[in-house]
Each structure stands twice: as structure tokens, then as C-alpha cells.
Write a protein that binds this DNA or RNA. Structure first.
Lengths: 262, 262
DNA sequence: TCCCAATGGATTCTTTTTAGACCAAGCTTG
DNA sequence: CAAGCTTGGTCTAAAAAGAATCCATTGGGA
């Protein structure tokens, strides 16, 4: 019997503020150049004192994520899109045996999210997704993928969250955030599963195209390919099969038909 | 443009501990009679000081949720399954316009969870689900439903979480917790949507039977009926239609065929 | 130009939380 | 029975966070 009790909060309050701002930058909800609300407004929104908020800002400024400028037209600005992992260290823990469950949950959740996104996405969403892909391609072209592996993974996370936001459903965004948080932990546990950058970019491009086409079957198929690839990578990285096979009803209809016919 | 910043934590640390313990009792992860770890272990697990933990326990004991007994064989015990709402007041906010999104997310998520649960549930899970149903029937028989409406809703929440736990996938449990947290807030906002107790019990009984049968199509159909009922109730309570119609791919295949045939 | 409003920067004082030690009660075991 | 362990109960000093105030800089508007 394990203890079901989790840490009640960040050890130091300002760390919670650091994490919250860092996560928003990491997930792409704040981008380089954006100006944050004033210290007073931020502190009020987060329900912490200004002194504590300032300590958080100082940490983020030291890390190069934020930049503060005094004066009437000054304020707090996002200085960099990239957030070092050290600033995040999520509170929730995940045992190694539960990593496969993250992939199973993605099977369950993400294809439907993508389909719903296809029904509700606006041009702005597509543009944002395309922009993320461009950034990844740029990293690849510059050969920085290995060096900045984490930067590449961060963009991957942003891509999936952005699809969730395209649904226009805040509950789904909330669920996706929960899922992605665990995914990032899982990636850390799984010995830095090597992302084959060109493959990821290719599959993401086809995912974007599929969502744009609003062809539900096509979305299901490309999502299946995406997740099947992740499952293979996990199996190779850990040298063991998935704890459970993917259940039939989580596979696309077309594949079932194909296999049943064969 | 709204502020995307949330409160960083409970105003007072001990409130976080209160909420965490209260939520576990409310969700049925702790039941009456259960003994909690010692104050020292609990405080260590939650990463707070013993003094703070004790303050939380005092609040919960005053509320009748916990009972503390000194001595070597003593400890902290769950005194009651029921948790007053006042102890929970979740931090996250939900605007009225986002309530319909909770139902949409359930459409997306819960049918698949139930299907996966059917593949992995153990007898212990079925027994627990049946026990929750018994408790609801008992409330109904005693005519206490209106009086203890919240008690009834709490059992409803426990039912759905228990299905998620039957999947044996901790990530899915985590997602379901996120979803149910928003559902409880939504219920509060939606003018206390009146739960028609006999209907809920009936549909839950059929949900349990469907999961037991492991017939995926049957699960989808009963889940559809369940959620359609919730949608109707929401529409009547708020006197307006769903912001969006339920997309086709979230409806069970059988219904699509039926409608297309008609 | 000159004043004002808004910004970050810094100080002070109070409350909360922490960390640790110590006590009293009561079961368990030798 | 008696020693020893674990339990909750209590207290204290130090660290952290909160709340409030004042300062310095800067840009925009009267």
C-alpha cells in the first residue's frame, strides 16, 4: 500500500510562481517579447505578495527567461521562448511502470481531440501550428536538434497543446495539460527516448494537414501512425514490450478492416 | 484578454492539506474507518511541517470528517464518508459559458474509459461499483435525496472515478480527476441541476452491467444515453441549447446508423 | 515644459510556517 | 509486570511570506 498523499504545494511559495510562469512560456502560452502584467497585478492574480512574486521574477530573470525594465513604459517581458527544465520539475511523480499508461491515455484521448479540433479550429490556430513546425525545421536545419534536444521536445509539447486549444474547449485544454505534464515526466524517465527529428516533423506536418482537411478517418489514421511510432520507440528504448497491447477499439477502423481482411 | 494566471496555492498552507485529504474522502479513495498514516508520516509525505498538518487535521476533525485517537494504537481515522462542500472550494474557476464544454469533454473521454475499464476491471472493482450503487439506493429509499443532495452527487462522482481506476492506468485516473473536479464546479454553477435520482441509479446500473458484459457497443450506447440525459438536463436548467451540437463522431455507431436509416 | 500616473526597487513590521525538542498516554513484547 | 516503542499533544525560536509604505525612474498628456 503506497501513500496516496502528494506534496501540498511548492516548498517555497515563490517556486510555485516560477513554475507557473515557466510552464506558460514552455507551453507557448507566452512568447518572446510578450509583456506580462505589472508586478502588482501579477501578484494579485496569483494571490501572493509582491515580495514573493519579485523573488520569482528574479529567478526567471537570472535564468534568462524574463527581462525587467524599470520606468513607466517598462515592465516584465518574456526574453526567451526556451525554458530550462530545472525551472519546472513537476511535483507529481510517475513510476516507471506507469509510463506505458501515458501512451495508452494518449491513444484514448488525442485522436478525438484532434477530430474535435478539426471541427472548430480557426485559421489562427493553423497558422500557429505551422509556426511551431517551422521552428522545429529550423532547429533541424541548423543541426541543433541533438544539442538542444529539450528545445525540440518543448516545441512538440506546444504542438499538441495547441491542437487542444483549437477545440475551443477549456476543459479539454485542461485535460491535455494534465496529460502533457505526465508525458514530459515520462520522457525524462524513459532514458531520453531519442526523438527522430525528421520523422516527428513529417508526422506533425501530416497531422496538421489531416486536421485541416477535417477528414476524420484521415485524422485517425495519422494519429495512429504517430502513436504507434511512439510505442515502438518506447519498446526499443526500454527493451520490453508494452505492458498491454493496444485494445482493438482504440485502433482506427480502417486498420481493423485491413487486418481482418488479411 | 484575460489573465491566464491562477492562484499559486492556498492562501494558508494548511488549507491545501485540508483540501487534499477532503478530496480523497470525497472521491472514495479513503472510506469511513480507514486509518491515515501517523502525523509525522503524513506531514513528511505532504512536505509540510507537523504543526501545519495538525492544523489541517483539526479543521477536518471539527468538521466531523476525521477522528483522532491518542496512544500507541491510536492515530487519525476517517469518521465519515461525507465531506461538506465548504472544505473543498476548488481553486480553478470555470466561467458559465464553459460548463457545456465539460459535457463535451465527457463525451470525448468517458465512453473510451469505460470500454478500457471493461477490458481490465477486476471483481473487486465491480464489487466497489455495486457498493456505491447500493449506497445511492439506500439514500433514495430513505427519501434523503433532496435533503442530502450533495451526498448523492458525491457518490455519483465516486462511481465515475471508480470506473477510471478499473482501467488500471494511473494517467487515466489523473485525467478523470481533472475532469470530475471541473464537473463538480459546473454542477455548482448550473443552478444545482436537479439529479433525478431514480434515473441516475438506473443508468448507472446499466452502465455497470454493460462494463461487466465487456460489450463495447453496448457500453457506448448506455454511455450515450447517460450523457444525452445530462445534456438535456443542462439545457432545461439553463433554458438554452448546447453551445455546440454533439459532433457525429462522438455518437455511437449504432445511433448514427439508425438515424441515417430513418 | 511640467506634472502626473504607472512602473520596478526597497524597507519595515506582522503573521504563518517550519524545525526541533520534549511530554503523556497506551499498546506490545520480553 | 516493566521496558520500549509509537502515538498524538505542546511549546519555542528561526525562517518565510504577507501587507503596507515610501522611493526613483520614466513616459505621456495637460
Amino acid at each position: 500500500m503506497e501513500l496516496p498523499f502528494k506534496p501540498v504545494g511548492p516548498r517555497r511559495t515563490f517556486e510555485g510562481a516560477v513554475e507557473q510562469i515557466a510552464e506558460q512560456v514552455r507551453l507557448g502560452e507566452l512568447s518572446a517579447g510578450d509583456r506580462l502584467p505589472s508586478e502588482r497585478d501579477l501578484a494579485a492574480a496569483m494571490q501572493i505578495s509582491r515580495a514573493t512574486l519579485r523573488e520569482a521574477v528574479r529567478v526567471l530573470a537570472d535564468a534568462g527567461v524574463l527581462e525587467v525594465k524599470p520606468g513607466s513604459a517598462g515592465g516584465i517581458f518574456v526574453a526567451s521562448d526556451y525554458v530550462p527544465l530545472e525551472l519546472l520539475r513537476s511535483k507529481s511523480d510517475l513510476r516507471l511502470g506507469e509510463v506505458a499508461g501515458v501512451l495508452e491515455a494518449r491513444r484514448l484521448f488525442e485522436p478525438r481531440v484532434a477530430q474535435l479540433a478539426a471541427l472548430n479550429a480557426r485559421e489562427e490556430d493553423f497558422a500557429h501550428l505551422a509556426r511551431i513546425l517551422e521552428a522545429q525545421k529550423k532547429l533541424l536545419a541548423e543541426g541543433d536538434v541533438l544539442e538542444h534536444e529539450d528545445r525540440f521536445l518543448q516545441l512538440d509539447t506546444q504542438f499538441h497543446l495547441r491542437i487542444a486549444r483549437a477545440t475551443g474547449n477549456s476543459t479539454i485544454v485542461s485535460l491535455m495539460r494534465t496529460l502533457l505534464r505526465r508525458l514530459e515526466i515520462a520522457r525524462d524517465l524513459a532514458l531520453h527516448e531519442p526523438p527522430v527529428a525528421p520523422w516527428v516533423i513529417d508526422i506533425h506536418e501530416r497531422t496538421l494537414a489531416a486536421i485541416r482537411s477535417a477528414d476524420h478517418q484521415r485524422i485517425e489514421e495519422v494519429m495512429d501512425e504517430h502513436l504507434a511510432g511512439m510505442e515502438r520507440a518506447w519498446q526499443q528504448a526500454t527493451d520490453r514490450a508494452l505492458v498491454r497491447p493496444v485494445p482493438d477499439f482504440l485502433r482506427p477502423v480502417a486498420e481493423r478492416a485491413r487486418r481482418d481482411g488479411a
